[in-house]
Design a protein around this nucleic acid. Sequence first.
DNA 1: TTCATAAATCTCAATAAAAGAGATTTTTGT
DNA 2: ACAAAAATCTCTTTTATTGAGATTTATGAA
Lengths: 267, 267
Amino acid sequence: MSAPNSVERIIAVLDVFSEDRLEWTPEQLMAELGYSRPTLYRYLKSLREAGFLASVPGGGFTLGPRVVEMDFLMRKSDRLVRFGKVHLDALVASFPCSALLVRWYGEKLLCVASEVSVENPVTSYPRGRPMPLSRGAISRAIMAFLPKRKLNRIVSGQLDDLRGIGLGPDVSDIFDVLRQIRRDGVAEAHGEVTPGVIGIAAPVFEGAATPIATLSVTISAAATTPERISAIRDRVRSAANALSAELGERRERDDTTDTGLRLVHTG
Amino acid sequence: MSAPNSVERIIAVLDVFSEDRLEWTPEQLMAELGYSRPTLYRYLKSLREAGFLASVPGGGFTLGPRVVEMDFLMRKSDRLVRFGKVHLDALVASFPCSALLVRWYGEKLLCVASEVSVENPVTSYPRGRPMPLSRGAISRAIMAFLPKRKLNRIVSGQLDDLRGIGLGPDVSDIFDVLRQIRRDGVAEAHGEVTPGVIGIAAPVFEGAATPIATLSVTISAAATTPERISAIRDRVRSAANALSAELGERRERDDTTDTGLRLVHTG
DNA sequence: TTCATAAATCTCAATAAAAGAGATTTTTGT
DNA sequence: ACAAAAATCTCTTTTATTGAGATTTATGAA
């Protein structure tokens, strides 16, 4: 699209693997990506040798075991997941709900951790599942804290979808809603993603002004009351704030050649 | 090492992230990889934009959210995991044990799925954790079915470690053990990885002659008897065979432009 | 088994991209 | 506001990357 360097091109091969299309043949990849035969095979060879892709009988390719290994490493290194776990556990212990950590990355929302305290959860997002960008408390808890430029781009891209939610017919109505969320520090949505399910979400920061994630709870409308919702809002907000504080805290670098401490920007 | 192409070089950046070292600064990466400053920053930029890496406050890099997403996709596309699940479940339902699927990839063993039926499992390998190459039933269930060339390379590389297990002082002794496993179709090890734990593993094939994984059970020696071990061996072997048959079966290609069936090579 | 066909790899010249030294800008901490 | 460090940019040289076509290797059918 922009700069056709070979790094982007090889990553583009991995990009085509999606939930809709988990397996590709070389012919299909050539058609999709427009690479010549030798080039594509070169890429496939490298990616397979590195474990990012695996061949399946029949000639197709799927994602390979390397991604499993890297996810394992990431679970260990991700401070959001590590510090967030106790907050998720506390929330599901207090309410019959699902509690999620959802990362904001690129232009996507991605669930990276979830805990559940009900038998048949009304919503259950496993780690790794992307979430809708335009609907629900999680989405708005992020959008409310995005820089104007970025927000405008997203809102105009998703305007039809956003209108359907009932926030209002116009962009300015949506902005009003978001401003209120920014004041409250927490977003709430009723049945936008799943009918009968209430979502409550608060942004999580890591020093900078743009949130990196939300901490959120989803609970069956039938299993709660307005008073309880209010209590959950408070708990979600304070947990998100606590988590943000932990993430932004002064911390030792694990650079063994540098024993000094460093104060993280808490903007 | 061999051909210094930029694909290998960018993958080499991801290679340095390991359980021992989950976070790297650009300076450290320059030193480790020997790339010039602009080159490294270019790579880091691409990898971060693609979500493979993420910056952390303080200047370091860790693996990024993209790997979470790809692991989610792989769980859905991996036929080994999908078809293997019922066998793991059946095993843990029958015996107080852990049941694992461990992939053989590159020169590594990697746990891709596990089920447990005991409260405090004596061994619990989560998805993504690499396993020792030289010890235990899982390792030998693979080695016993490797082509001679590859096996020789591995055995000579790990000879000291292999000797320590008590299979015999010499390479030929090890080969004898492996030949017996090849006959039995199942490997057994006592306390090689964890003291007091018995491992029982059988190879899983996907058409070709080289196994792609093992199906295995680990059980506390205290929780079992020789008779039961014999029963587990039978169950593990037959489950692995059943799984291999499912993986090698005639199956439809999901190439929408090709409606034909294709017979998979059953080597 | 042998053969026909499709799939994957190789060869090699032309071309376009990548690399790095050093300057410059931006970020960060005092 | 300032100094130091970190990250990015500029621009030329060098070098890998590319793709057409030939070749080899795998695959399925007879």
